[in-house]
Simulated assay, not measured.
Amino acid sequence: MSMDQDFGAAIRELAQGGGPVLEALAKQSENALQHAGLDPQTALLVRIAALVALDAAPASYLVHLGIADSGGMKAEAIEATLIELAPLVGSARIVSAAGKIDQALRELSTP
């Protein structure tokens, strides 16, 4: 396998919500939350809001939703965040985020 093929495989794996790059990003994100000066739930909601504003890929949500799930965050907190963001980012961005969050949640629930 060439370097291009190896890189392509790694990127596809990341885009599909897995692999060593996603694992490294998850560890990095979790460590950053411990040093942000915010309580973990607030920090995660800020990060999710940024992902919505950026129209991030489902794999990006996957990292943060995994941390939120393990920390016991309620779905209502994420839903409230989406509602608060709607006037700022627009309905299209919220609907896009909802679909990507749903896709990420399906990835989390897949064994």
Rank of each mutant, 00 (worst) to 15 (best):
M1F: 15
M1H: 15
S2F: 14
M3K: 15
G8N: 01
G8W: 01
A9S: 07
A9I: 09
A9H: 03
A9R: 03
A10E: 04
R12P: 00
R12Q: 12
L14H: 02
A15R: 14
A15G: 12
G18L: 08
P20T: 10
V21F: 14
E23H: 13
E23D: 14
A24L: 11
L25H: 07
A26F: 14
Q28S: 15
S29G: 10
E30D: 12
E30P: 06
A32M: 15
Q34A: 03
A36K: 08
G37P: 03
L38D: 10
P40N: 11
A43P: 02
L44M: 13
L45D: 05
R47V: 07
L51G: 04
V52Y: 06
A57P: 00
A57S: 12
S60E: 13
L62E: 10
L62Q: 10
V63D: 00
H64K: 08
G66H: 07
G66I: 03
I67W: 04
A68C: 06
A68F: 01
G71Q: 01
G72L: 03
K74F: 10
I78M: 02
T81R: 07
T81N: 10
T81D: 00
L82A: 10
E84G: 05
E84D: 03
A86K: 01
L88M: 11
V89L: 09
G90S: 01
S91R: 13
A92K: 06
A92F: 02
I94Q: 09
V95N: 05
V95C: 01
G99S: 04
G99R: 11
Q103F: 06
Q103R: 10
L105D: 10
E107V: 15
E107Q: 15
